[in-house]
Write a protein that binds this DNA or RNA. Structure first.
Lengths: 200, 200, 200, 200
DNA sequence: AATGAATGAGAATTCATTCAT
DNA sequence: CATGAATGAATTCTCATTCAT
C-alpha cells in the first residue's frame, strides 16, 4: 500500500552510495582529495573498488556529488533565529554558531573544498557561490539586528570581514592554528558600524 | 680574485639549488605539492632527476627548504615605515601593502604552505609561527598608529581580525573569489577600536 | 490468429535478440571486438546488461551467433544472374557487385571476422569456409562465362586471385586504402585465361 | 680511441629498448595489439613494467616505434635483383619472395599493422604508404621484365592486383587460410598483360 | 524473463626514489 | 658531483560476468 516513493534505487544501493560518500568525506577532509586513493575510500566504505566506480565513474565525481548533495550553497534556511535585535555583535556570534562551520561534516567539506578550489575549477565555482551566500546572509543579519539603518557600504564591508574571519577560522582549525576569535571580531565590527554611522 | 668566502658550495652547485627551488616554488603554487612530480621540478629547473635528489633527498625536503630559506616567519623588518600616526585604518592598509601577500613569490609560497599545512606537521608549525608573527606586527602597528593607548583585548582582537582578513584574501585570490576588501575592514576596525575605547 | 509457428521465442524475446545483434554488429565493426565492451552493446541495444548475458552467456557468443545467423558461408544463391556469357571480365565484375562485400552489413561483418579470425579459432574456421565458398562460386562463374572450357589449374588460380582482390579490397576500404581496382583485375585475368589456353 | 659512435644511449639501454620492441612485435602479432597487455610485453622482454613506460610512455608508442624503426614504407632497396628479363611471371614471383612478407618479423609487423589500421589513424597512414610503395615497386618490376613497353593502365592494374594477392596471402596466412597461389596469379597476370597488348 | 547492482581481477600509467657509472 | 636508466608499489579506472530479486 505504501507507494514506491520517489526512489528508483534499491534501498541497498542508496545505502552503498551514502556509505561511499561518508567515507569520502572523512578521508578527503583528513588527507586531502589528491592524497586520498579511491581504493582507500572503497575500503573505508566497505565496498569493492568496482562498486565505487559503478556509482561514481571518476574520482572527481565523488567530490562533485559531495558538493551537490551535501554542501548547499545557500548556507541557512532562515535568518530570524539568530538575530538578537539591537545587538549586532551577539547576532553575528549566533550566526557563526548556527552556520556550524566549526563542527561536523559541514566543516569537513568546506575545508576539502577550499583545498581543491584552485585545482578543480568546478569546485572553485562552488566555493565562490558559498562565499557569496555567506556574505548575503550576514548582511541580512546585520540589517535585522541593527536598530538603525546601515549604510550599504559599511554593511557590505562588515559582512565581508566577518565572513573572512569565519572562513579563516574554519580553515585554520585543521592545523591547530585557530587563534582568531569570533567574538572579538563581532564586537569590533559592531562598534565600527555605529562609529561609522555617527561619523556621517 | 679569491672565491666568495661565504659559500661553502661551488657557485654551480648554489645555482643548481636555486634553480630547483625556483622551479619547485612555481610548480607547487600552480599545481599543489601532491600533484607536482619531482620529475616535473627537475625538468623545469633544467637539471637531471638524480641531481635533484642529491640536493633534496626527499620530496618534502623541497618544501622544507622553501620554508626555511624563503619564507621568514617574521614577516617584516621594521614597522615604522607603514605607520600613519593617528590614522589606524590607513596604517593597516599600508601594512597589508607592505606585507605583499598579494603579489610575487611570497603569496605563492604562503598558498602552498596553507594547502600542505594539515598533511605535513612541520609545515603546519611554520604556518602557526607565521600567523603569530603577523598578529604581533599588526598589534605593533595598531599601537603606533593610535593616538590613545589601546586596551590589550581590543588590540589583539583587532589584530587577529585583520590578519584573518588578509590571509583569507590571499587564500581566496587563487581561485578568483577575492571579494574581501581590506580597506573596508581597516576602516571598520579602526572605528570599532575607538568606539570600544569610548565605551570604557 | 495463432502465433507464428516457426518461433519458439516470444516476439519480444526475438526482438531483443535482434537488437542486441544489430548493436554488436555496428560496434564490433567500428571499434573491433576486443575494444567493444559488453556494456556498450547493451546500451546501444537499449537493453539492460543482465538481459544481454541471458541471451548470450559470454561475449564471444555474440560473435559466434553473428556468424551463424548473419554471415552464410555460401555467399550466393544462384550464379546465373551474374554470368555474361562470353565475357569473363564482365561476369567477374558483376559477381563482385552481387557479393556486396563493399557495402552494408555484409562488409561490416566480414571485416570484424577478419580481424578476429586469428584470435578466435572458430571465427577463423568460418573465414576459411567463406573463402572456399567464394572461390567455388567464382570458378562456377568463370566456367559459365567462358566460351571455351578452362583448364582446371588456370580456373582455380584465376578464382583465387580474384577472391584475393575482392577480399583485400573490402579489407582496405575500412582505413581508406582502397586503391585496388576490381575492373582491372577482371580484365587482366580474363586476358590471362585466354592467353593460357592459346599457349596450350 | 674509438669514437662514441652516434649513440647517446648506454649499450644497456639500447639493448633494453630492442628487447622490448622484440617482445612487443611477437606478442602483438600473436594476440593483437588491443589484446596484448603492456605487462605481458614487459614480462616477455624481461624488464619491469616501469622501465617499459620509461622507454615508451604510452602503449601506442610501442606500435609507433615499431613502424618507424622496423617497417620501412619503401619495401625494397633495388629492383634489379628480382627482375628476370623477358619473364614477367617469374619476376613477380621473385619479387614476392624478396619482399619476404611471408616470413619473419616483416610479416608479423604487417599483420599487426593491418589489424590496427582502422582503430589507430597513424597506423592506417603507414599502411597506405606501404601499399603505395608496394604498387610502385611492382610497376617498376613489370616494366623492367617486359620485353615490350606496357600500357600505363594495364601496368597499374596488374601491379595493384598482384599487391592485393600478396597482402591477402600474408593476411590469410595467420589463420591458416592461405589458399591463394602467388605463382598462378603471376602467370595469369603476365598472360593478361600480353593479351592486352596484342589486342591493341 | 528481466534488472541493474555487485564483484574482483587486471589494465595502463605514474612516480618517488635508488644506483651504477 | 652528475647522470639518467632502473624499480616496483600504488593509482585510477575498465569490464566480463554473476546473482538476488
Amino acid at each position: 500500500m505504501t507507494p514506491p516513493l520517489t526512489r528508483r534505487r534499491t534501498p541497498d544501493s542508496a545505502d552503498v552510495r551514502r556509505r561511499i560518500l561518508d567515507a569520502a568525506t572523512a578521508l578527503f577532509a583528513r588527507d586531502g582529495f589528491d592524497a586520498t586513493a579511491t581504493s582507500a575510500v572503497a575500503r573505508a566504505a566497505g565496498v569493492p573498488k568496482g562498486l565505487l566506480f559503478y556509482h561514481f565513474p571518476t574520482k572527481i565525481d565523488l567530490l562533485r556529488n559531495l558538493l551537490a548533495e551535501r554542501l548547499p550553497a545557500s548556507p541557512l534556511c532562515g535568518v530570524a533565529s539568530v538575530v538578537v535585535p539591537g545587538d549586532i555583535a551577539a547576532s553575528l556570534v549566533a550566526l557563526h554558531a548556527e552556520l556550524g562551520l566549526d563542527q561536523h561534516q559541514s566543516l569537513v567539506l568546506r575545508i576539502v573544498v577550499f583545498r581543491e578550489a584552485q585545482t578543480h575549477p568546478e569546485v572553485g565555482e562552488h566555493v565562490r557561490r558559498l562565499r557569496a551566500g555567506l556574505v548575503a546572509v550576514t548582511e541580512e543579519v546585520l540589517d535585522a539586528a541593527s536598530v538603525r539603518p546601515l549604510g550599504p557600504e559599511d554593511r557590505r564591508s562588515a559582512a565581508r570581514t566577518f565572513v573572512a574571519v569565519v572562513l579563516d577560522h574554519a580553515n585554520a582549525e585543521r592545523f591547530g592554528g585557530a587563534e582568531s576569535d569570533i567574538e572579538g571580531a563581532a564586537r569590533l565590527l559592531a562598534g565600527g558600524l555605529y562609529a561609522g554611522q555617527r561619523a556621517r
